[in-house]
Structures are given as C-alpha cells and as structure tokens.
Design a binder for these strands. Structure first.
Length: 1016
RNA sequence: GCGCCGGUAGCUCAGCUGGUUAGAGCACACGCCUGAUAAGCGUGAGGUCGGCGGUUCGAGUCCGCCCCGGCGCACCA
C-alpha cells in the first residue's frame, strides 16, 4: 500500500466524518460585540420585557444605594453596580420579579463646594441661594448622564430611563414625610449641644461624615493658679495644717493637660477623679520653688518630661479632698471650680482635666450637671469672634481689663493657627510647665479634609433612645436603639461579621445631628416666631410645606421672590410673625429615606416588599461597600425602623474597597483608578465582570488591567469549551433528536451527574452571594471534567458514528444539555457572552429570546424518581448518579496511570498519538478487586480503549506482573501494573483507531468494521 | 488603645465539625496531536499552609503570644 493510496483513501472518507462546525467565533471581540448587544437590549426594551415576563412572580428587590453624582464611575462604584447586576440577574433567572431602579444622590456639600469655588469661594454679592442651587442641579445632572452611560457600558441592566434622584420633588417630599413622622412620634429634638463642626465647610457634621486622620497637635501642661477654697474644703485644712502653708499658697496651681490649647479661653472648670490619689508636690523650676496639685500616678512622668528638679511629694490625698477648690483662669477673669467626672483617667495628662463645655461632649455633660457656663467664642469659620462679641462670648465681666493683650491676639484667629500663639504666650507668662508635639488620630471633615472642632450649637437631633409611645408599632415600649438591634439581628448579613460591626455601632452611637448650615439640600421645614423665639414645626405646618415641595420642589424654600414666607406657612399661623429657619438636612438623611421615597413610593416598587412568613422588610437586599455600615445602612435602619417599624432590607451584602496591585486604596490622585467605561473599552465588560465574580470581594479587591487580563485565560477557556460543545450540535435539533434520559449512554449520564453537582454547588454559592466560590466549580467543570475528560472521550462517537446513531445522538443530547446549562450558569456574570451563546444554542421553541429571561438550571438528586421521558427541560437530565460517579472516578484513575506511561513513551518517540498504543493491565489486590467490580474482563476490554484513548486494552490474568517483561507498577493505584506496546494493527483511515479488524469488509479495505458499517 | 476580618504554590482561590504523601484553575517547563486548530491533550516542576509556643496518638484546621495587611471603634481632655 503506497502512501498516496492511503492519502487518497483518507480524503475519500473524510467527508463522511462528522466534524464540528459552528459560526460561534472563537475570538470574543468583546469591544465590538458588547456595545452592539447593549444597543440591541436598549432598542428591544429588554428590561421592560423581563419585567413583563416576571409579572406576578414573587418579588425580590435589590434596592440600589445611590452613588454620588459627582465625577466618573470608577472601578469601585463599577464593581458595586456589577455585583448588584449579577445578583439581580441571578434572582431573575431563579424566577423572581426583580425590578432594578438605580438612583443618584444629588445634594450635598461636595457639589455645593465645587459650584461655590467656581463662583470665587463664596456666594457673590447679589447672587441668590436659588441660583447656586440651580448650578448645583445642572452639575449633578451632567454627571448622572455620564455615570449612567458608564454603568450601562458594563452591561448593567435596569430602569435607566427613569432612575430615582434625590432632587426629584416627589423624593424630596418623601424625605420630609419621614421627618414629619419622626416629629409626630417624638424622635426629633432641637437642642443646644456640642457637635463636630467643620469650619472649612462651615457646617455641623454627623459621625458618618468624619474621617480619622493622623495629625500632630501641641500637648501642653498648664498651671491654673489656685485661688480660693470653700469653707469646709478639706484641701484647705490639709494645707493649713502645714508649717509652710504660706509658701505653698503663694505658688500653688492645678496642673492640667490639653492637646487643644485653643479651647483654653473657654475653660470654665477642672475635672478630677473622686477616687484617684492626688498629690501636693513641690519642685524647682528656673531656680524657683513652686507647688502643684496633680494625680499621683502621673507625677513622675510629668516631672521627667518637664525636667522638674527636687520634686517632693508633700501630701497625698484622694481626689474628693479637692471638693470646693477654686482657681482663677490664667488669663481671663473667671473664677472656676474643681468638679468631678467619671471619665477622668490616669493614662495620660495630669489627672486634672481642662473642662470647656463649649468644646467637648463630655465637658458639655459635666457642665450641664455642674451648671457651668457654656463658653464658645468661636464662629462658624473656626475663628475667634472679634471686639465686643468676643468679650460677650467669653462671658467676661464688664470690668475685666485685658492688660496682657490676650484678646487682641485671639481676635479673628483661626483656632489651629491660634494654638502656637497661645502656647508661646502661656510660656512667656510662666503658666506653661511643659509642651511637646502630640501625634494622634483626629477627626477630619471627610469632604474638606480639615480637622474638625467641637462646638456647641443649636441643631436638630434624632434621639436614638427615644421610646415610641405607639403601642401598635412598639408594644414592648423599647427604645429605638433596642429596636434597631432587634432589627439587625433579624436581617441576614454577608459576610456575617457585618452584623457585629453595625450592631456595636448602633449600641454606641450618639443622637444623630441631622441639620446642616448649607444651601444644596432639602430644607428642614421649620419657622421661628420673631416675637417669642418659638420654633414652629408642628404637623400642620409640615404637611403644608410637604405638599408645596411635592408640587414645586424644595426650591420653594429658597425662592424668596416667588415664595415669600407667608406662602410657606399654613393658614393657622398666618397672623404670626414667622421667619424661615435656614438649616437643611444632612444628605445622609435624604439617602436614608430612600426606603420610603423609593421602595414605598415608586410605582414599580411600592407593592414589592420582601416577605418571608411573618417577616417583612421594605426590600430584599442592600449591597454596598462595607463603609456603608456607618453610612447608608445605618441611617436607613434608623429612619426606617423609627418611622415604619420595619427593616429597610432583609439581606445586607458588603464588599471591601478596591485597591491597586500594592494593596493601596485607589485614588484618582495616585492614578491607580480608572473610569469603568474606559476599562470596558480596553478589556471588555464581560472580562471585568468575570474578574469581579472570581475574587473574594469581602476583602480588599486589587483591580488592575494586568490582573484582569490574567483572568482572560479563564474566559477563553470557558468560551472555547462551550464552542466545542455547540460545534457538535450543527445537525442536532433538540425536539427531534434528543434521547430520553434512560436511553443515554453511561458516560453521558456520568457527565450529567457531574453537571448536576456543579449546578448544585453553584446555586448554593450564589445564594450566599459568594460568586467566586460558585464560579470555581464551573471553571473546574469546564476545564477538567468537560474539556480534558468527557469531551475528549466523546470525539470518536460524535465524529465517526452514524449521524443518527444512538451513540452519537446520546452524546449530542448531552452536549446540548451541557451547553444549555453553562450558558445559564454564566449568564449573570458574563452577560454579553451568555447572550451571544444563547443565540447559537439549539433551543426548544418555548425558550425566551434572551438568556436573561431564561430560567436558572435545577439539578435533581440521586434519589429522584425517573420522570416521564418527554424531552423538555434540563432538570430531567441534570441528575446525580453516585454509582456512575464512582465508576468513572475509578476508570479515570486508570487513565491517569496509563497517561503517565504514554507520556514517557511519547517523549522517547516510541509513539505519537494514543491510538498508536495498546495497553496491558495487570491488576491484583485492591485494584484487582476494583476492576472486578467495574465489570467483566470482556466488558472492560471493550470499554477501556475509549476511556484511555488508545487502540486496545487487554487485561492480563497473570499473577506476578512485576516479574513479567515490560510491566511496571502504577504510581497511585496499588496492585496495578501496566505495559504499553506499540500497536501492530493497521489504522483505520477514517477513525484512526487500530482495532485489528481493518480491511475485514471487502468494499472498504482501509476501514475498520465499524466505519465500514457507517459508510455503508 | 480596644475590637473584627484576613495572611495556603508566581497569580486567583478551595480545604466541612482536627486524621492517610496539602488541592484546583491560570501562568511556567517539557512533550503529543493537527478532525474544537491564533484551538485541543498529556506530563512535570512549584508550598517549612505568616512566625513562635501549646493541647493531641495526630493541626493548615483547636488554644496562647507575636508579626504583617485591611477595616472598624474612640471618654486620645
């Protein structure tokens, strides 16, 4: 037989081989495919069609947290939206009705700041707040359009043409209704309290608006001269009893410590600990003998720092001895008392705490208890008042003469700039015992990044410990705090530690200051009576304003020309002299009201709360970065529980921040952050989405082009495996050719059993929102079970058996089911690719045109009863089969052993392809038993060539293979020996196998019997 | 300062209630195939499971301390 003749024969039969064929491109071309796909989704109204298809199904609503309408949507916000979209698509496929209404947070300081900056830093003369607000709205609207385009480019599907905006009049009115409800239930109070104050932003700040940053402040030890002691003062007796009492009195001071020297002018008391030990000590400084009082425990530390000489402890006494002691303010004319407070500790300082109720929370509480005056000489901009105002705010007596020039120094000075001036003057006047730099973490304004100060102002607060008297909503008379904790416990937190985190925040949080002194926000609808000073915000007034805002937007509050105050107040107050109050709401109050403004108000969402038995929440899920534990989640909980008694969500999923390859937080200034649509353009949305679904988003997620590209291989593998499946279905019509489950070959049923396990694991993981764990299963299944194992073993059947043979149709039925399953499983993640696959997948007529309307696969367990045999849906087939699992596990182990030897022989150039080889197996012991269980020798010899991908397999009955020529022991299977030999048989030119019967059929001398039969 | 989470091959991740030589994919190396072909298959080399100590017959898995990273809290006057 000549080479040419063989070649000719091969050519002749090649056309009878059923080779794979498909138009599904190997190369993804995401950059072209995705925009086209999105355009098609848009024009065909996919979102609306999904809504329609799920109408009447149980609702499952993920309520979108509104990103801030300022700047590009970058990787972090992009990841968040992508994860949300993945959840929504998954739940939709599971059969739920999942409307997704995206929203934007439009009000707030950053935008106002930016607009003000464009106007030159502050509102120019003659410009109204209304004009500023219009500029702000324009700016926000611009970014909403940009961000919308960016999110859509990532394949995120939702009601983009009608999102919720916190600037919509209906939204604003809903926020006000939440406020009204708080007022009605008694949660609101307007009170004078110390609040975090941003002097740069000139507004109060809430806890959520603080960021702790490191900074260094001057730490000073200051002598406050002791001036008087009450009549029964024990300390006085103590000193009087001393022989040197006169010298002691002459130079005696309380030693206090502070890191905020600028608050010293507001000092009104010194706090001590009743139970702690204090000392009266003497020392020499600058050649002078002086006396001081401070805590015993801190004396040596302070003495060392201040380099005090000859320190002598004259007396030791408990703190309570100091009751009745008074001192005079070192540079003002106040006479101040020593008071006692719990929070005085002996860790730092002197055990004597400088107390300024105008500038500290604890100080304020102490001041209230001790009836101390509240001194607060600082204006909105963080500067000391000037002139008479300063004297007044410092509560100086009219006779006070500022002989040493303190007041001129302070006037108009920024507090942080005043610090060193004060220190130097204290030093000059001899009050300063010691000073040093003190590095610590200190609260900063999260928007302006300037250090905040504590300042007493009158603000609106939500009282966290208020008990709602409503018996129906709060039957057990619990505080809001307790009810919040109950609500938190009833929700589900992913990861689970989120519950602890937010729980401890709620346990410890102070009342919520919700008023801000800005323009770009929703006004707090309150008036002040210019005659009585009374604050008017009764329900009728609120209702009146709410209805105006609902119709005309919150601008009515700022539009002096068209909306004079008379129009804003209800008829009942018409005769009073009222003026508008100028506070607006904390933006968090707005976002936190979305449960009401969106979930309970939106026409598409209002009837879709989450229900599970008796449990009800306004939505099924919130999904945000874990910074929202102190932000949106918390404020939403507070407002929702207080006003509705329900949780805003049932599931709360958080993700960590995105970081760069060095693990550093992304920021635009570092350039390690990119707009999401740029990434989509460069890498493809599906690739980015696959990446986010492949990593554990509960710890910091590194996001770089390189890392994402690394996952390109996983994408290509998935795509090609799927292509391998679908390319063998070119002549397969499910309705016509699919076999019933019981007619499928064992190998095929095994593959389906493996698939069932994947569906199972993946569903479970996705229901826990652990996409990366689920995806692992799918990747492994595609790479190993399918590509390397199953599909390799099916090739001969698919290519060489008769087109309509059971063997081939069985494989095709399985390929079809697997392809179908994979498309569905990947659809929530690779939304475009899955849709593309869906077009190429042979489908039954009843399937929807978009994969995103299709159902999530369901797998049956082992024990499932055999359903009837009509070919309809995947879940008839995706069926566990433990027996087949075990059988193929064993067979594949044999394959691994034979592969090792075949590989070596290939490297030795003894053989090339597997069909060149025959394998002899000798099995004893465990493996012998195993093989015997797998089938009779004849059965195995018939089956194994396909599994091992060789031409022939013989079982050797010999007993001592180790001694037989050429046998070698297996690596892992005990008792197994193998011998691989080069097959002498002729290869069939059609199927390449060396079956030993080539030429048996006279008409086809180059074919094996099987192929001859097929060719006919 | 206190608390929470994490630290497993170059990368991304599995390792349940402690139990045989610690797994997977990707990447890498070496081959094979040329009928999934800018594909596919096989084999291999990579880890003292952050460190130290303890409990145990036995620990990546439990306990203690420490180091590193991330996050949160705050009465740092």
């Amino acid at each position: 037989m000549s080479e040419d003749a063989l070649k000719a024969a091969k050519e002749k039969y090649k056309s009878t081989v059923l080779l794979p064929k498909t138009e599904f491109p190997m190369k993804a071309g995401l950059q072209q495919v995705e925009p086209a796909m999105q355009a098609h989704w848009d024009s065909s109204g996919l979102y609306a069609r999904i809504r329609k298809a799920r109408a009447g199904a149980p609702a499952w609503v993920l309520h979108d947290g509104p990103p801030y309408a300022n700047g590009d949507a970058h990787t972090g916000t992009g990841m968040n939206k992508i994860l949300k979209d993945t959840v929504v698509k998954f739940r939709t496929m599971q059969g739920f009705d999942c409307p997704y209404v995206p929203g934007w947070d439009c009000h707030g300081l950053p935008i106002e700041h930016k607009m003000l900056a464009e106007m030159g830093g502050k509102l120019p003369e003659g410009t109204t707040a209304l004009e500023l607000r219009e500029k702000c709205l324009e700016y926000a609207t611009k970014w909403i359009d940009i961000q919308r385009r960016q999110f859509k480019s990532a394949g995120v599907l939702g009601r983009w043409d009608n999102p919720y905006l916190t600037t919509n009049p209906s939204y604003e009115a809903s926020v006000l209704r939440v406020f009204r409800e708080l007022v009605r239930r008694g949660f609101m109070t307007r009170a004078l309290r110390p609040v975090h104050w941003s002097w740069a932003a000139q507004s109060a700040l809430a806890e959520a608006e603080l960021e702790y940053e490191d900074r260094t402040d001057p730490s000073v030890y200051v002598r406050f001269p002791l001036s008087s002691c009450g009549k029964d003062c024990k300390f006085r007796e103590l000193v009087e009893a001393r022989a040197d009492s006169e010298q002691v009195w002459a130079s005696l001071a309380l030693l206090i410590w502070t890191t905020t020297p600028w608050t010293l002018p507001a000092n009104v008391a010194v706090a001590a600990a009743e139970k702690a030990e204090y000392v009266l000590a003497s020392y020499t400084r600058n050649g002078k003998r002086e006396h001081l009082v401070m805590a015993q425990a801190l004396l040596s530390k302070v003495a060392e720092k201040a380099k005090l000489q000859d320190v002598q402890v004259l007396e030791t006494f408990p703190g309570e001895t100091l009751r009745g002691v008074g001192y005079s303010h070192p540079f003002l004319d106040h006479a101040c008392p020593v008071v006692f407070a719990e929070y005085v500790t002996l860790e730092d300082g002197t055990g004597l705490v400088h107390t300024a109720p105008g500038h500290g929370k604890e100080d304020f509480d102490t001041g209230k208890r001790e009836k101390l005056p509240i001194v607060c000489p600082i204006d909105n901009a963080g500067k000391y008042f000037t002139g008479e105002r300063l004297r007044k705010e410092l509560q100086l007596s009219p006779t006070f003469e500022d002989t040493r020039g303190w007041l001129p120094m302070l006037e108009g000075q920024n507090v942080f700039k005043a610090n060193p001036l004060i220190v130097e003057k204290l030093r000059g006047e001899g009050w300063l015992l010691h000073d040093e730099p003190y590095p610590h973490s200190y609260p900063h304004c999260w928007r302006t990044h300037t250090p905040v100060i504590f300042r007493v102002t009158e603000q609106w607060f939500v009282q966290i410990d208020h008990v709602d008297p409503d018996k129906q909503m709060n039957p057990q008379g619990k505080t809001l705090r307790q009810r919040l904790l109950d609500t938190i416990a009833a929700a589900r937190w992913f990861p689970a530690w989120g519950q602890k985190r937010i729980g401890s925040m709620i346990e410890n949080r102070p009342d919520w200051c919700v008023s801000r002194q800005r323009y770009w926000g929703i006004p707090i609808p309150a008036f002040q009576d210019t005659v009585t000073g009374e604050v008017v915000s009764d329900l009728e007034t609120l209702d009146h304003v709410v209805s105006l805002v609902e119709k005309h937007g919150s601008n009515v509050w700022f539009d002096e020309a068209n909306w004079p105050v008379e129009k804003l107040v209800p008829a009942k107050h018409a005769r009073r002299k009222l003026v508008k109050m100028n506070d607006i709401f904390d933006v968090w109050f707005e976002a936190g009201s979305s449960f009401n403004a969106v979930m309970r108000t939106d026409h598409e969402l209002a009837d879709k709360p989450y229900r599970d038995g008796d449990y009800t929440a306004h939505s099924a899920m919130y999904l945000e970065g874990d910074d929202q534990h102190r932000g949106w989640f918390q404020v939403s909980l507070i407002l929702s529980v207080a006003t509705s008694g329900q949780s805003p969500f049932h599931d709360c999923l958080t993700s960590a921040f995105v970081v760069d390859e060095k693990g550093e937080k992304g920021s635009k200034s570092k350039g390690n952050i990119w707009a999401i649509d740029q990434g989509v353009k460069d890498l493809g949305a599906d690739l980015i989405r696959l990446y986010f679904a492949s990593v554990d988003t509960s710890s910091p997620v590194p996001v770089t082009y390189n890392l994402i590209k690394t996952h390109g291989e996983a994408y290509r593998k998935l795509r090609n495996t799927w292509r391998g499946l679908v390319s063998n279905l070119f002549d397969f019509e499910p309705a016509k050719h699919a076999l019933v489950y019981d007619a499928l070959l064992p190998l095929d049923r095994w593959a389906l059993s493996q698939a069932a396990a994947v569906v199972h694991a993946m569903t479970e993981a996705f229901e826990r929102y652990e996409f990366h764990t689920g995806l692992r299963e799918l990747t492994h299944f595609c790479n190993v079970t399918l590509s390397a194992q199953y599909m390799d073993l099916c090739k001969d059947r698919l290519y060489c058996e008769a087109a309509n043979s059971v063997a081939r149709r069985s494989a095709q039925t399985t390929y079809w089911l697997l392809a179908d399953m994979i498309v569905r499983l990947i659809a929530p993640v690779c939304v475009h690719t899955a849709e593309e696959m869906w077009r190429f997948l042979p489908k039954l007529e009843r399937e929807p045109e978009s994969v995103h309307m299709a159902s999530w696969p369901v797998a049956l367990g082992d024990a499932a009863a055999h359903p009837e045999t009509r070919v309809t849906i995947g879940d008839v087939y995706l069926r566990a089969n433990a027996k087949l699992d075990a059988r193929y596990r064993a067979l594949l182990q044999l394959k691994a052993e034979s592969d090792r030897i075949l590989d070596r022989m290939r490297k030795e150039k003894v053989i090339g392809k597997g069909y060149d080889a025959n394998v002899l197996l000798g099995a004893q012991g465990e493996t012998g038993t195993l093989l015997a269980m797998l089938g009779s020798p004849e059965q195995l010899e018939a089956e194994l060539p396909e599994v091992l991908n060789v031409s022939a397999v013989k079982l050797d009955a010999g007993t001592d293979h180790g001694a037989l020529q050429g046998f070698e022991p297996a690596t892992d299977l005990k008792g197994l020996s193998l011998k691989v030999s080069v097959s002498e048989a002729k290869a069939c030119v059609r199927c390449f196998r060396r079956t030993g019967d080539v030429g048996s059929v006279r008409e086809h001398e180059h074919l094996c019997v099987r192929c001859a039969g097929v060719v006919g």
